[in-house]
Structures are given as structure tokens and as C-alpha cells.
């Protein structure tokens, strides 16, 4: 029996708890969205999206654990790479216009 199916409280399993935690992380992501929209500087937005991306990687990983689909971790891995790339690309872009990549 895997940990996901282990009973926690009142008939709910660890998998259910992890799904709820993923929902909690998403709610926090919605909070961070405020900074991504408001700015005021471009770096504020990039920073907010970077934090959001890290949050999404955690959400994806938790979903993969909760749904017992280990292959979903690959998506989280791809996202972690892309998130880092995006932060670096945009912060380079705002410094030297035209000098992207």
C-alpha cells in the first residue's frame, strides 16, 4: 500500500490531503498574480511570474504524487527549466533592448 492511499482523518487519504494542498498552493498563486499585474516596474512582474512558476512546479509535483502518476514529474521538470530560462531571458531583455538571447 502506498502512502497516497494511507488513511489520514475521517475517511480521507493522504492523496486527498495532497490535492487540497495543491489547491492551497494555487490560491497563493492567485495572490501573487496581483504583483504580476500591478508591477510597477518590469522587474516586479518578472519576479512575480518567477515565484508563480516555482509555485506551479510544486503544484505539478504534488499533483503527480496525489494522482499516483510519476510520469507527470517530467512536466514539472520541464517547467522548472523553462521558468528559469524565462526569468533570465526577460531580465536580460529589459536591460539591453535588442540584445535578447
Amino acid at each position: 500500500m502506498s502512502v497516497v492511499d494511507a488513511a489520514l482523518v475521517a475517511g480521507y487519504t493522504v492523496g486527498d490531503f495532497l490535492l487540497l494542498a495543491a489547491a492551497g498552493f494555487t490560491v497563493l498563486a492567485i495572490g501573487m498574480l496581483y504583483r504580476a499585474v500591478k508591477g510597477p516596474t518590469m522587474q516586479d512582474r518578472v519576479l512575480a511570474v518567477n515565484v508563480l512558476g516555482t509555485n506551479t512546479v510544486v503544484i505539478l509535483a504534488i499533483l503527480s504524487a496525489a494522482l499516483s502518476e510519476p510520469t507527470f514529474l517530467d512536466i514539472a521538470l520541464v517547467y522548472a527549466l523553462l521558468n528559469f530560462l524565462m526569468a533570465i531571458a526577460i531580465s536580460k531583455f529589459t536591460v539591453e533592448r535588442g540584445g535578447v538571447l
Binding site: 522587474q43 518567477n50 509535483a61 521538470l77 522548472a80 521558468n83 528559469f84 526569468a87 531580465s91
Partner: peptide
């Protein structure tokens, strides 16, 4: 993935602050 995040997250924040 944990170690990757540990390395890249501060790096990205540093790059943004530098920008």
C-alpha cells in the same frame, strides 16, 4: 528537482535584481 530549484531560484532572483 528540489536541488535544481534550490540552485536556480536564487540565481533568477539575483538576475532580476541586477536587471
Amino acid at each position: 528537482l528540489l536541488f535544481f530549484i534550490f540552485v536556480t531560484n536564487p540565481t533568477a532572483a539575483h538576475a532580476i535584481a541586477r536587471a
